[in-house]
Amino acid sequence: MMIADLGDVKLNYRIDGPTDGAPIVFANSLGTDLHIWDAVLPYMPDGLRIIRYDKRGHGQSSVPPAPYSMGALVRDAEALLDHLQVRDCVFVGLSIGGMIAQGLAVKRMDQIRALVLSNTAAKIATPSIWQERIQAVRKGGIETLADATMERWFSREFRRAQNHLPWRDMMVSQPVEGYLGCCAAIAGTDFYTPTSGLRLPTLGIAGSEDGSTPPDLVRETIDLVPGSRFRLMRRAGHLPCVEKPAEYAEILTGFLTEIGHV
């Protein structure tokens, strides 16, 4: 475990691969930690400098008081990459991680040369929906949302085999304050205008069974960026890196090869 002390927050991060490798950064979803990428890494090409981190309020990172703003989450990623002296990375963001990716790409083009926006959107749900979830968690904890979330996150086949249970455990074990803080950040975010101004290689990935960010929503966001690519993963939900890691890595590798990052 490595901790970057960034002042108002301490972020847990992990680096795999050579120090001089082409950097690729992974940012994960609400209610998860950096381990959602574990199964993808063995399928990735050799030679990459793979950076994963827990956003504030999640995993082993510190838990500032809620609510959080998306600006704060973007600044965290920016400060971490500066701390690690990362430039020209490919930034892979899933769900809220994809929102962070969009915000960071607008702010720091020197840090990001290409984007992978996975199971995400420029705007996710409505403020009223997020407020309902915040109230439910304040009343009954994350457990209150867990079963309904699993139905949105994973395909029926994956859940029928009980393969979702470790991820349910991961979700309910996150700090409540951090979960609420990130819910507030998503509720306050609408990136349609800034994302439409991006001009960099962009790949969108969606899961056909995703109940949190359905394929049409993902595609709508990806289409904001001229020249972007879009890939739909069949029989996968909101975390295709968990359900189908080999296929996910194959899609990533194809994109990295196309843009000359491997």
Rank of each mutant, 00 (worst) to 15 (best):
T195W: 15
P194A: 06
K244N: 02
L232M: 09
G204V: 07
L81Q: 07
C183V: 02
V40S: 11
N28M: 10
W153H: 06
H238V: 00
G47H: 08
L239A: 08
D110K: 11
V242R: 07
G260R: 09
N163Y: 12
G140C: 12
W37C: 09
V225S: 09
G7F: 10
K10C: 10
L11I: 07
D76A: 00
A187H: 06
Y179G: 01
P194R: 09
C89K: 15
P127G: 01
S173G: 13
V225Y: 03
L145E: 13
G31Q: 11
S69N: 12
L34M: 11
L6T: 00
I15H: 10
A249L: 03
V86L: 06
I96K: 04
D210K: 13
L104K: 07
L232D: 11
H35A: 03
V90K: 01
G98Y: 03
T221Y: 02
G260L: 06
L30Q: 09
E151V: 07
G188D: 08
C89Y: 13
S212D: 00
R75W: 04
S61H: 14
M1D: 07
A136L: 13
C89Q: 08
M99A: 15
H35V: 06
Q60M: 11
A246Q: 09
Y53A: 01
L41C: 13
I24D: 01
A236R: 09
M99C: 08
S128I: 05
L94Q: 11
A121N: 15
A72K: 05
T149L: 00
D38V: 15
V218H: 14
S155L: 15
R219I: 01
S208P: 00
T221V: 00
G103N: 04
E220A: 15
K123Q: 13
K244G: 05
A146M: 11
H164F: 06
L80N: 05
M2G: 03
A77W: 08
K123S: 09
A184P: 09
R156E: 07
Q60I: 00
Q174G: 02
D76S: 01
G140Y: 12
H164V: 07
A122Q: 03
W130L: 07
L80D: 03
A125F: 06
E157C: 12
C241S: 14
T126W: 11
V242I: 02
I251E: 15
V25I: 15
G254A: 05
P240V: 01
R199T: 03
P226H: 10
I112C: 11
P45N: 04
I251W: 14
A148T: 14
I50W: 05
I259Y: 14
R156Y: 06
A4K: 06
A184S: 14
E78R: 13
I51D: 01
V92M: 01
Y43L: 04
R108Y: 02
Q135F: 04
L48N: 01
R229K: 08
R199E: 06
V25P: 00
L203S: 07
Q131G: 02
F154S: 10
Y248K: 07
V137H: 15
I100T: 12
L217M: 13
V9D: 13
I24V: 09
A27L: 00
L117V: 10
T202K: 08
T19C: 12
H58D: 00
